[in-house]
């Protein structure tokens, strides 16, 4: 190696293998395709939050605002007669992105607490607005009559969820690739710098707020596309896409997987969905209790999430082999 690497060498084969898991799941669990599709959408949503929170350090209590905006944008477009899915998805991303850009200016002012309040407040405002604008959103009954045309003009969204599965899979893979390039770029490094030491960054001449605004907008766009995917694959939008619970849920998913690692969002989405299925299986609507317990335990004992645990175990194993090797050398 002639040039010293700035970032650790990416492990491509393992990553490719990771993204083949859903393909295997398609064949292994043909009856659970809608669930896996939703899981992939949740993963994409969590990855979008990871850019904002894990890499840029912006704690948001209202990320669902963009998810919901995307869902309603794609849903309403299809309901009004423009059923072509890909352009609908672009529209969803654009609407969320524009709102992200406009509100980002406000969010970046002030302290953590003010940020929490402003993100939460904007999220609540959108929720209330969608709730009251019956004529457009269907209000509390949800958005009915979303008609999505065949994908690429050829693949009908079928009742088994085959098309939906591959559509969401493609969305996740493409946007994950974008996010991955972004975090390994100079821009990504700059965000990590801002997250760890803002003062030093401005002493290096960095336009800190501009960069934060940029990543907030990108995160909003990705969340919007995730929302759009949900609306198109389920052909329905309910009010809870904008709810506070949805924002809290995606935070949990990310923290569960491990923020600041990109894969944390995906691992978290899988763990969350499995947990949801298992726990709500035997305690139906007290599932929230277990959710809360997991959160509390996570913060108390495993701050890096599941991937953080894996890292810690790997480190311990490395230390274990090192100390095991030491006596041999002595002998």
């Amino acid at each position: 190696m002639t040039q010293p690497m700035v970032s650790p060498k990416p492990w491509w084969p393992m990553e490719v293998g990771f993204f083949l898991i859903p393909v295997a799941a398609f064949f292994l669990f043909p009856l659970h395709l809608p669930l896996i599709t939703e899981m992939m959408i949740l993963a994409l949503f969590a990855v979008s939050l990871d850019l904002v929170l894990g890499y840029a350090g912006i704690v948001s209590l209202g990320h669902a605002a963009f998810f919901g905006l995307g869902a309603y944008a794609a849903g309403i477009l299809a309901q009004q007669g423009w059923g072509e899915p890909l352009s609908g998805l672009v529209f969803a991303g654009a609407v969320a992105g524009v709102v992200g850009l406009l509100t980002g200016v406000l969010v970046l002012r002030g302290s953590d607490l003010t940020r929490l309040m402003v993100t939460l407040g904007i999220g609540m405002m959108l929720f209330e607005a969608a709730n009251k604008m019956n004529w457009l959103t269907g209000g509390a009954d949800g958005l009915q009559g979303v008609m999505v045309e065949p994908l690429l003009g050829a693949f009908q969204f079928d009742i088994f969820g085959h098309t939906a599965f591959w559509y969401a899979y493609a969305g996740l893979v493409v946007l994950f690739y974008v996010a991955r390039r972004l975090v390994h770029s100079p821009f990504g490094l700059c965000l990590r710098g801002i997250k760890t030491n803002r003062l030093r960054m401005s002493a290096l001449g960095s336009r800190v707020n501009l960069h934060l605004l940029a990543v907030y907008t990108v995160g909003a766009m990705m969340a919007g596309i995730a929302g759009g995917l949900l609306a198109q694959t389920t052909q329905f939008v309910s009010l809870d896409v904008l709810s506070f619970e949805r924002s809290a849920e995606v935070l949990l998913v990310l923290v569960l997987g491990g923020p600041g690692r990109l894969y944390g969002g995906i691992i978290g989405a899988v763990a969350f969905t499995v947990m949801h299925e298992v726990l709500s299986g035997f305690t139906t609507h007290y599932w929230q209790f277990w959710l809360g317990l997991v959160l509390v335990l996570l913060v108390l004992f495993a701050r890096g999430g599941l991937l953080g645990l894996v890292d810690a175990l790997r480190k311990r194993a490395a230390r274990g082999t090192a100390s095991a090797a030491a006596p041999e050398r002595a002998a």
Binding site: V59, L252, Q288, L295, L298
Partner: peptide, 24 residues
């Protein structure tokens, strides 16, 4: 001394536990 994110997650967790307990 934890980060604000940890505090937020922890206390949201408590809220969920409290809500489910009250419900139960």
């Amino acid at each position: 001394k934890a980060s604000h994110l940890d505090q937020v997650m922890f206390t949201i967790g408590l809220v969920f536990i409290a809500m489910a307990t009250a419900d139960y």
